[in-house]
Amino acid sequence: MDVLDNPIRSAGRAAVVWRGRAAAPGTCGELVQGTLRGEPFLITCPVDLWSEVSVELSNSGATVAALDKSSRAARLTLQYLGAEYACVAIKRVSVLPESKGMGSSTADIAATCQATARALGRELEPAAIAKIAAQIEPSDGQMFPGITIINHLTGEAKKYLGPAPPLNLVVADPGGVVDTVVFNRRQDLASKNFQKEPMVKQAMELVTRGLLTEDWEMMGRGATISAQANQVVLPKPHLALWRQWAADMRALGVLVAHSGTVMGMILRPGGVDPREAADFVRRQKPDWTVWHTSMISGGLR
């Protein structure tokens, strides 16, 4: 569990303080990610792992020159709301690992935006939060309700696909890190995305239809196709093994962090217990980090 304090130092006198809190879910990569006709998009996959942020605003204090992502989110939110405070103190408590593709930065940024707004007695719409988040880095989109197609570079929501299915996941991280900002600046990214567009189009159609008709097997097939297609962009050395384990457990399919390190397994309702599945992976790969969690609808609390 990670705790971050980022206070802007007090001037040493009593100050009026406004407080707000918010929490945002992480993700298990994405159900689908790529481009269609050159436009980038992803289909969100929020999970029941959270980042909680509290913000305190004060009318006195000193300014800090170097701001991290959460501090930038708070400042951009204040600008959006037409407010200005000398002192912004941020505390974050998160179970989400960084640079793995589990939406940790987006969760921190989104929760900070809403907590800042709530300190002022305001509530931001998901579209406003996504627009602020996209100014900082590409967004995972879990501020939007349910499961949503978004342009992760602009933060624009394209289509709401309905609530999250009631499905459990096993999530595994074999190790390593990927910087989302650096990844999206790759010179070969456009050509690699163009190369996999036919598979991505098929994946998006299957996942979209599966979610809209509550056909989870169809959704799982689409997610698996997107995971496989992404091997030309960011290869997962253990994806073939992961798919084999998923087949052995009669899982609905697999998914990956398309710009991260983690892989997910979508378990069949009434099938293998998620704790048993996670324990199996831990026994096979004791050096991996493994979670079991569930898909949830996006949105802040």
Rank of each mutant, 00 (worst) to 15 (best):
I109H: 08
I109T: 07
A110S: 15
A110L: 03
T112R: 14
C113M: 13
Q114Y: 01
Q114C: 01
A115E: 04
A117H: 11
R118M: 05
R118G: 03
A119F: 04
L120N: 12
L120I: 08
G121N: 13
G121D: 09
L124P: 03
E125V: 09
A127W: 14
I129P: 08
I129E: 07
A130I: 10
K131M: 14
K131C: 10
I132A: 11
I132K: 01
A133G: 15
A134I: 08
A134F: 12
A134E: 13
I136H: 03
I136T: 09
S139C: 10
S139F: 02
D140I: 05
D140A: 06
G141A: 05
Q142A: 14
M143L: 05
F144N: 01
F144R: 03
G146T: 02
G146S: 10
I147W: 00
I147E: 00
I147G: 00
T148A: 04
T148S: 11
T148H: 03
I149Y: 05
I150N: 03
I150D: 02
I150V: 14
N151A: 09
N151L: 06
H152Y: 09
L153K: 07
G155M: 07
G155I: 02
E156V: 09
K159C: 06
Y160L: 10
Y160K: 10
L161R: 12
G162W: 00
G162K: 01
P163A: 13
P163K: 09
A164P: 08
A164Q: 03
A164Y: 00
P165M: 06
L167N: 04
N168M: 07
L169Q: 04
V170Y: 09
V171G: 02
A172E: 04
A172R: 01
D173W: 01
P174Q: 10
G175M: 04
G175S: 06
G176Y: 03
G176R: 08
G176I: 01
V177H: 13
V178S: 00
D179M: 04
F183T: 00
N184P: 07
N184S: 08
N184T: 12
N184V: 05
R186M: 03
R186A: 02
Q187M: 08
D188M: 06
D188L: 05
S191E: 15
S191K: 13
K192Q: 15
K192S: 12
K192R: 15
K192T: 04
N193W: 09
Q195F: 06
Q195C: 06
K196M: 15
K196S: 12
E197F: 11
M199C: 11
V200T: 15
V200E: 10
Q202L: 14
A203W: 12
M204V: 14
